[in-house]
Simulated assay, not measured.
Amino acid sequence: MVNFNGTIQSTSQNQLTFDNRGFKFGDALFETIRVINGKVIFAEEHYLRLMASMRILRMEIPMSFTLEFFEAEILKLIEAQQLSKLAVRVRFNVYRNDGGLYTPSTNDVSYYIEVKRLKNPFYTIDDAAYEVDLYKDFYSAPGLLSSLKTNNKSLQVVGSIFASENDLQNCLLLNTSKNVVEALNGNIFLLKKNVIKTPPILDGCINGIARKQLLKILKNLEGYTLEETSISPFELQKADELFITNTVIGIQPITKYRKKTYTTDFAKSLVGKLNAAARLS
């Protein structure tokens, strides 16, 4: 089932046309959200990011698109699938309506929501090996547009294929200035002694919701200095820890980059704090 413009429908009912702008031009946005026992985690943060992204892409925001509407439409589908007492992953998709070429005929939008059950209700850390490398065939462009969760994910797709072909769990992306900006599926954090670094949004990384929560947590950690600053690939070899964040996995420690291995103690110490932030959201 999906929620298409407020109506619960079977996935066999095809509502997307060949003129769909999300399909033809990547003229679409999405939010990936965790819902636990009927509670939308970090709902306000996801909603505000979606509204800001729609404004940047000059989409017309319907008057009905309130925070209450956003949550209610998500929960409507979850209840219809009898998943209210479980942990689920939600994808909330918004796309500009059909018509036009690069210049759209309208800025009005439609939306659809899909859900998938998750194994764990709270964030956990798997102790399995997690190896990454740089993906250098293509680069991310610095700037605000790269921070949006649009349907244009060609870089992540070909990067994921590269990772699979090379028996890697993930890859780290570079921008055109050759700085490390993020992983294929999340933001990146680096720990060296008592200094924590993460790339700034304008370097081209996704404006991640889990990233925002970690920044709040890390700013209050005694004995550590937090820096939003560009990260050179050379710094990866000198780091004590590297970890990835996104809304679905929470925190994923990296255990190996090329010949460098990392500890995971610091990342593990943050999981409980992130779960606490989720419960209070």
Results as ranks from 00 to 15, higher is better:
176 T>A: 03
176 T>N: 04
38 G>K: 03
118 L>G: 09
195 V>I: 15
240 D>V: 07
279 R>Q: 07
148 L>N: 10
238 K>Q: 11
74 I>M: 14
154 S>E: 07
136 K>A: 07
66 T>K: 03
75 L>Q: 02
120 N>L: 13
2 V>L: 06
275 N>S: 07
240 D>C: 06
221 L>A: 03
163 A>W: 01
26 G>P: 10
65 F>I: 05
225 T>R: 15
110 S>L: 09
25 F>I: 06
187 N>C: 11
36 I>M: 06
239 A>W: 02
223 G>D: 08
260 K>W: 06
63 M>L: 12
1 M>G: 07
275 N>T: 14
66 T>I: 14
110 S>Y: 15
89 R>Q: 08
131 E>Y: 07
57 L>S: 04
204 G>Y: 02
26 G>W: 06
39 K>L: 13
273 K>M: 12
212 K>S: 12
49 R>N: 09
150 T>S: 11
40 V>D: 00
232 S>M: 03
72 A>S: 10
119 K>C: 06
174 L>K: 00
100 G>M: 12
125 I>T: 10
174 L>T: 04
150 T>H: 10
64 S>C: 08
110 S>A: 12
73 E>M: 01
186 G>F: 00
275 N>G: 08
117 R>Y: 11
114 E>I: 14
171 C>E: 02
53 S>L: 10
85 K>N: 07
221 L>R: 13
252 Q>L: 06
215 L>N: 13
193 K>A: 13
32 T>L: 04
77 L>F: 01
34 R>W: 05
218 L>S: 09
73 E>C: 06
147 S>R: 01
270 L>Y: 10
11 T>L: 09
246 N>T: 07
278 A>I: 14
207 N>K: 15
202 L>M: 15
73 E>G: 02
97 N>T: 07
177 S>F: 08
229 T>G: 05
145 L>D: 06
36 I>V: 15
73 E>A: 04
180 V>W: 00
67 L>H: 13
2 V>K: 08
23 F>P: 00
196 I>T: 12
252 Q>F: 05
16 L>V: 03
239 A>C: 03
83 L>S: 00
196 I>K: 12
70 F>C: 00
83 L>K: 00
146 S>Y: 04
208 G>W: 04
207 N>P: 11
88 V>R: 00
174 L>W: 01
274 L>P: 01
240 D>R: 06
78 I>Q: 10
104 P>F: 05
198 T>V: 02
19 D>P: 01
46 H>F: 12
119 K>P: 03
171 C>G: 03
101 L>G: 01
246 N>F: 10
253 P>D: 01
166 N>Q: 10
250 G>E: 04
